[in-house]
Simulated scan of single mutants.
Amino acid sequence: MRTSAKIAAAFAAAALTLAGCSSNGDGGKEGGGDGDKGKITIGIKFDQPGLGLKEGSNYKGFDVDVAKYVAKELGYSEDQIEFKESVSAQRENMLANGQVDLIVATYSITDGRKEKVSFAGPYFVAGQGLLVQNSNSDITGPDSLDGKKLCSVAGSTPAQRIKEEYSQGVQLQEAQGYSECVELLSSGTVDAVTTDDIILAGFAAQDQYQGKLKLAGKPFSEENYGVGVQKGSDKCEKVNEALKKMIDDGSWEKFLKDNMGADYKPNDAMNPPKPGGNCG
């Protein structure tokens, strides 16, 4: 009888232990929010100084800080974030295939993209610009590109705009990343690089390019940066709330100054933006 009682007690203890292990689910994490699910995968750029830059095992930039803030508001700690490189041409596929949960990578909200993905935001409004060598006085805007070699990134909004609106006489070269374009500009292989002004400003501020490259003319578009999520995802409105809080509590302004410098002045008429209305 004693042996039977001991066996029964052992089984009861084991059952309680198993119940305790499974009560929290997902690795036994406690508390509410999406963070209980283990991790969140966020697509960023790896080669955009000031915005999304990978240095060894570290990631830094305005987009990176925005991504961390949003993840925290969704219930994830920094050690639960997995950053994945998202090149411009692959962003829609990465969301559709579930390779990433969010994309925070200078991702302009457009009607065409909204057919495939949902957007929270905008969290920043940029304008397309041109980067040239410091000695260049010929290029003053998109209308002065005839006969010039211009570099942008395949699948990006700036490249598409140049093709549609300024293609006559322009020799457009498409690269996989803006760092490649800037290297081609620095070596004189191309005459200019085009993308959003905040991206170009980040490159021009790098040590190896200071005094060598400059922004030419004024921005000639309006680019609303959004956080991309899978089409119809219930995360979209949650991200919008996180972005609104980030702007209201002063974090947005701090992230911008920390990464772009106190001298960078975004367009006051458009920034800070008002997130919302793009989750459909």
Rank of each mutant, 00 (worst) to 15 (best):
G228V: 11
D146F: 06
T189V: 14
S22V: 06
P273M: 15
V239Y: 15
S233K: 15
L53I: 05
T3K: 14
Q128M: 13
K116S: 06
K274M: 01
G28W: 11
E223F: 11
D36A: 08
S186N: 14
F119T: 01
V190T: 08
L184H: 02
T195R: 05
Q80D: 05
Q160E: 09
I139G: 10
T195M: 00
Q48V: 08
V227R: 14
G61A: 01
N224E: 15
K254Q: 08
A13F: 12
T140L: 02
I198K: 07
N278M: 06
L243Q: 15
S23Y: 04
C151V: 11
F46K: 02
D263E: 11
T157M: 09
K39A: 13
T17C: 12
D34F: 14
N97W: 04
D197G: 05
F11C: 04
L243P: 13
G98A: 09
G25C: 00
A126I: 02
G27V: 04
I198C: 01
E73W: 14
G25D: 02
G61D: 03
L243D: 15
P272D: 12
A269S: 03
A5W: 11
Q160P: 01
S22C: 00
K149L: 11
P219E: 14
G250Q: 13
N267A: 01
G127Y: 08
L145K: 02
G35K: 11
A204C: 08
E180R: 05
P158W: 03
L150E: 06
K149V: 09
D63T: 08
D234T: 12
G250Y: 08
E92Y: 14
Q208M: 10
E183G: 08
I247Y: 15
S57K: 11
V227I: 15
G33I: 06
E82F: 12
G32I: 03
T3D: 13
V170T: 15
P122L: 07
E253Y: 10
Y178A: 07
S86D: 02
P158K: 03
T140P: 01
A71T: 08
A13L: 14
G202W: 13
S221M: 06
S152E: 05
D249T: 12
A269L: 07
M1C: 01
K37E: 00
G217V: 12
S144N: 03
Y107M: 02
D79I: 00
A192Y: 15
F83W: 11
G127P: 02
T157K: 06
A216G: 14
A12G: 09
E164W: 15
A8C: 00
N136W: 07
S57D: 15
R2P: 00
I199P: 06
G52P: 12
G155Q: 04
R2E: 03
E183L: 00
D111Y: 02
A262G: 01
